[in-house]
């Protein structure tokens, strides 16, 4: 009589976090499907390494959007922030490039520190707009995103900035122990930091409280303005890091790189189970959503007959499907609590 019990346990496990398990099931199902249909082409080390090098650029931006969405806001300026940072850093790299085409040893750390500072500044700007001026986040960040992109266009005239040393791209495209891509390492570090902040520090709890009810947060004595500014600064930093990875992946910077990422990142975050109204959401869900999208897209590319344009159809479909499923489980939950008074 073990099977009913394990079934029960599995059911309990599933119910403990339906959303996360649903994403895991989708990933596993897709992996099995790929294993059956295109095993040789999909299950190669190089394929997984490529995927791990591709997703951090929009993955990092998604992490930033996630943080702002937990507070009930949104950050639509991530792509603008990323591009402005990468363009400014590209100019700096051009100046640093030596005659022989290399870079001095201090160049890459310097560029990264400056990028973080720039990202923080742009995020601070957003935070001030949202907290001090009370501009709705969606508008404030839409405006600042447009502004950042505009500055990019104005200083580059829409051209790509590329004539800097290849050393930068080569360093970031390296693999640690010739196995793990550097991009993945950067993403993982940031993800761990954010996980720590959200679940182990007071900052995280305050963030969820702020997202649940701003009024309650204010009357509980939280300094909501500072909290918001900190969050947007973090989001700016994530976006700037994403921009630095884009700079390496394309080996150039341009004002209109990654314009599709804005909506794509919002999609990822929502797919990851973050409530757009604020107050809930976990980093595990968002990371799973990032992986799901990457695996789906790469897998689909293994079928040359299927137009790669179908990927946007699938994304939209998956997003709506997940939301509708959530709707049904939530409604079921409400019904059971009303009827039986079970608390979950």
């Amino acid at each position: 009589m073990t099977s009913p019990r394990t079934l029960q346990q599995a059911q309990r496990l599933y119910r403990s976090d339906r959303h996360m398990w649903r994403l895991i099931i989708m990933i596993v199902a897709w992996m099995i499907f790929m294993a059956i249909t295109r095993f040789r082409k999909f299950y190669t080390l190089i394929n997984f390494q490529t995927m791990a090098a591709q997703f951090p650029e929009f993955g990092l931006m998604s992490l930033g959007i996630m943080l702002t969405m937990i507070t009930g806001g949104i950050d639509l300026s991530v792509v603008g922030t990323a591009n402005l940072t990468s363009i400014l850093m590209a100019f700096l790299l051009i100046n640093l490039t030596t005659a022989s085409g290399g870079l001095p040893v201090y160049a890459i750390p310097l560029v990264f520190v400056l990028a973080l500072l720039l990202g923080a500044t742009f995020g601070f700007f957003n935070g001030i707009l949202v907290s001090k001026f009370h501009i709705p986040p969606i508008l404030a960040t839409m405006g600042s995103g447009e502004l950042f992109t505009g500055i990019c266009m104005a200083i580059t005239n829409g051209n790509a900035i590329s004539k800097f040393s290849r050393t930068y791209a080569n360093t970031i495209n390296n693999r640690i122990f010739s196995l793990i891509p550097v991009q993945l390492v950067i993403f993982s570090i940031m993800a761990v930091i954010i996980w720590f902040l959200l679940s182990k520090t007071a900052y995280g709890s305050k963030l969820y409280l702020l997202g649940t009810s701003e009024t309650v947060a204010r009357f509980s004595g939280l300094k909501t303005n500072r909290l918001l500014i900190k969050t947007y600064v973090l989001s700016g930093i994530c976006a700037a890091l994403g921009g630095m990875i884009m700079l390496a992946n394309y080996n150039s910077a341009r004002a209109d790189y990654g314009t599709v990422y804005t909506l794509q990142c919002v999609l990822i975050v929502v797919l990851g189970g973050v409530n757009p109204v604020g107050g809930s959401g976990k980093i595990s869900g968002v990371v799973l959503a990032i992986i799901l999208l990457r695996v789906l897209e790469t897998g689909l590319n293994r079928f040359p007959k299927i137009s790669s344009y179908y990927i946007s159809l699938i994304w939209g479909g998956v997003l709506i499907l997940v939301m509708v499923l959530n709707y049904f489980t939530e409604h079921a939950k409400v019904k059971t609590t009303q009827a039986g008074g079970s608390h979950e």
Binding site: L267, S307, S312, L313, G316, G317, L319, M323
Partner: peptide, 17 residues
């Protein structure tokens, strides 16, 4: 916002795919 994000993705996919 979420629904229209999703449907805009679907519409684009229908058109281009």
């Amino acid at each position: 916002l979420i629904v229209t994000l999703g449907t805009s993705s679907v519409f684009k996919g229908l058109m281009q795919g």
